[in-house]
Design a protein around this nucleic acid. Sequence first.
DNA 1: CTGAAAGCGCTTACAG
DNA 2: CTGAAAGCGCTTACAG
Lengths: 335, 335
Amino acid sequence: MATLKDVARTAGVSVASVSRVLSNQPQVSDALREKVLAAAAHHSFRPNAVGRALRGTGTRTIGLVVSDLLNPFFTELARAVEDAAREAGYLMIVGNADERPEQQDLYVRTLLERQVDGLIVVPTVETSPLLREAADLEQHLVLLDRPASEVHAPLVSSDTSDAVSQLVDYLVTTGRQNIGVLAGPQYAGTAHQRLEAVREALARHGLDLPAERVWVGDYKRDSGRAQTRRMLDERTTPEALLVSNGRMALGVLDTLSHAPVEGSPLPGDLALAAIDDLDVFTLLRPSVTAIAQPTRELGRRAFGLLLDRIAGKPVESVRIPCTLHLRESTEPRRV
Amino acid sequence: MATLKDVARTAGVSVASVSRVLSNQPQVSDALREKVLAAAAHHSFRPNAVGRALRGTGTRTIGLVVSDLLNPFFTELARAVEDAAREAGYLMIVGNADERPEQQDLYVRTLLERQVDGLIVVPTVETSPLLREAADLEQHLVLLDRPASEVHAPLVSSDTSDAVSQLVDYLVTTGRQNIGVLAGPQYAGTAHQRLEAVREALARHGLDLPAERVWVGDYKRDSGRAQTRRMLDERTTPEALLVSNGRMALGVLDTLSHAPVEGSPLPGDLALAAIDDLDVFTLLRPSVTAIAQPTRELGRRAFGLLLDRIAGKPVESVRIPCTLHLRESTEPRRV
DNA sequence: CTGAAAGCGCTTACAG
DNA sequence: CTGAAAGCGCTTACAG
């Protein structure tokens, strides 16, 4: 590949002049500009961003590390961050931690070494010494979706409590008091919050959430299947089940539709709702009630905060409320 | 951030020695190694990959530009490439062209400027001067999933013809001769191939595929909805419809399930099959027959070819066959 | 085994 | 308006 030097030689000018022309600096004569542009075109010159970055003007690159890129929620989140980044002239590099702390740290380390101008992380686990260190070393860091303890960085997350509260109100007032939860994994900061939101909403009706009505999965589809089998085996099926994320809900549905008893128990016997709204929920029969997260808004705000941090402005954590979509899967019994 | 120079100063040695220790070169004394490691730890030293890359040892980064990252097929494809890259010690940067040629070129240009060691592209359109130029300038380029004309680069793609042939055989021998196709957009190289595969399979049975039984969408869900409405309005519904990708099939299902006539026409009246197998197809009722692409294999092979190119080995294009999954949506009429 | 020095491709004060 | 020169952080022949 041709370099500035090559272009300078064919144009018969200095590399400094070539650099000025190609970076659109105003103080250059038209004659010089013309010579340089012709030479650049002749060489199919493409600037080397590595050289430029080393000089210290930043890399115009941000990193995004998500906990699981195959999860459609994170795919859409990544997409929102990417759109915002591209509009602002930044390139986004995504790393997929796949819910593995070592892999998360591998990406964080790699991205820092590549001198990204800032980093957005959906923490896989609640605690990471590397993230803590990065924040303390004044790296530009923004947390997204999930909190991470002792990491001094702003967090952009969704607030499920209002929507959960509306959902619980609806279930209880239509006769379902015996409500169970398929919660997310301990290590994910969101799992705990969502569980608490249900507990508080129930408490407002004077109801409690005993341990035998809480199952725990890992946010993947298979755990939805496994926990549902356990629930059916234990004959402890509640009247309504609130599933902490979308993919587990698919697993639940899959197992219910293959349950030993002919026919699906929905919605007659078991009302079902998910936190996290998937495209397909409207296609299934019964369609699935869900709490939709403000996904694109989350991504957009996270990038906004990061830009502010890079620009040295003060930033604060942000919480954005979710929306409840009532569908067939929570309709009251017909009796 | 601390640099090699800082570490050298505190260790009381030269930067060359620090570099040698930190890159695990063998010819260093234990005493020196110890001093350097201590100093590096003291500074929380993190090597600057930009400095290293400029020196000319490559960036250990590859770029992947996909035509639409929100399409689960490409998400999984990206994931497969990422896994292969990570295992080989490479970082992958994804760019999402969103089916827009200018955006594809933006990413290709940006990635080349950042000195990626190689580039894998799912071409949004059949032709791109920039891609052609990149290939001709000896950049390491591999095309994935879709061909691009006049671009001198190897292609890794899936071969649907066998699976389509099996599917058509099944439909015809079980009494469905009037077969229609919802094809993909002209600009995608795969769309044409898939349509031809159906045409050839039908020809083997002495059947043809007239223009009035071919609808054209853009691989997105909404176009599945729109074309289905057209089909219903025109009262030209065939006995079986083969949809060229998964998301359009979801749109078709959505519209059929809301069709004016009560009840879904599946599978009694209209057999449905998709090219591209989505997770949810097994959850829907009827479950949806699909031709599954060897997604992970495609991603893995593409990265393999790229590594070979980078290593200077000769590489050839690869085609990998698809697999047919017969499900309820193509079951013969019960009559 | 270790160090001094050159150089990767760029940008930007500093002169003129 | 233009050029010569320094320097970003690293690696690697070249000496010793």
